[in-house]
Computed example of a mutant assay.
Amino acid sequence: MLEEETEFPLEMMFSFFEGVKRKGPGSETSTLKALSLLKELPANPQIAEFGCGSGVATIPLARSLDCSVIAVEIHQPFLDELAAIAVREGLADRIKTVQADMGIPPFPNGSFDVIWSEAAIYNVGFKRGLQLWKPLLRSGGYIVVSEVVWLTSAPPSKAKEFWEAEYPMMTMVEQNINTMSELGYDPVGHFILPLEDWQNYYDPLQEHVDEFRLMHSANAAAQNLADCLQSEIDLWKECGSSFGYCFFIGRSF
Rank of each mutant, 00 (worst) to 15 (best):
E73C: 03
Q76I: 11
S181R: 12
L205D: 01
E211M: 08
L183T: 09
L35N: 04
E174D: 15
D113L: 01
Y185L: 15
I121E: 04
K134V: 11
W163R: 14
R88A: 11
V149N: 03
L151F: 12
S30W: 03
G24D: 01
W163L: 15
T58I: 05
A34W: 00
D210A: 14
C67W: 03
S181K: 13
C52E: 01
L91H: 05
K23W: 09
F243Q: 01
V98G: 02
P155C: 13
F162I: 14
A84C: 14
V114W: 02
V114M: 01
A100I: 02
A57R: 00
L229R: 03
L130K: 01
F16A: 02
Y201H: 12
E207L: 12
I249L: 10
P25V: 06
V149T: 08
D186H: 12
L130E: 01
S217W: 02
T179P: 01
L183D: 11
L38E: 02
R63H: 10
G244V: 03
Q223I: 00
G24M: 04
L225W: 00
P168S: 15
A119P: 13
L130D: 01
E207M: 11
C228R: 08
S117V: 13
L91A: 04
G26K: 00
L235K: 08
S181C: 09
D234N: 12
Y142D: 12
G55M: 08
M180I: 07
W116N: 01
N123M: 15
A34K: 05
A71E: 04
L37R: 10
S64G: 13
V209K: 07
S54Y: 00
I177T: 12
F50A: 07
K134C: 09
L183A: 09
S153W: 07
A220P: 08
K33P: 03
Q76C: 10
G125E: 01
L65W: 06
S139E: 14
R63I: 08
D101L: 09
G90E: 03
P168A: 14
Q46M: 09
S68Y: 11
V69W: 09
Q199P: 00
S217Q: 06
L183Y: 10
S217N: 04
P106H: 09
A83P: 06
D186Y: 15
P25G: 03
H208Y: 07
A34R: 02
I47T: 01
D210G: 05
T29E: 15
M170L: 10
K158W: 03
E7L: 15
L61D: 00
S242G: 09
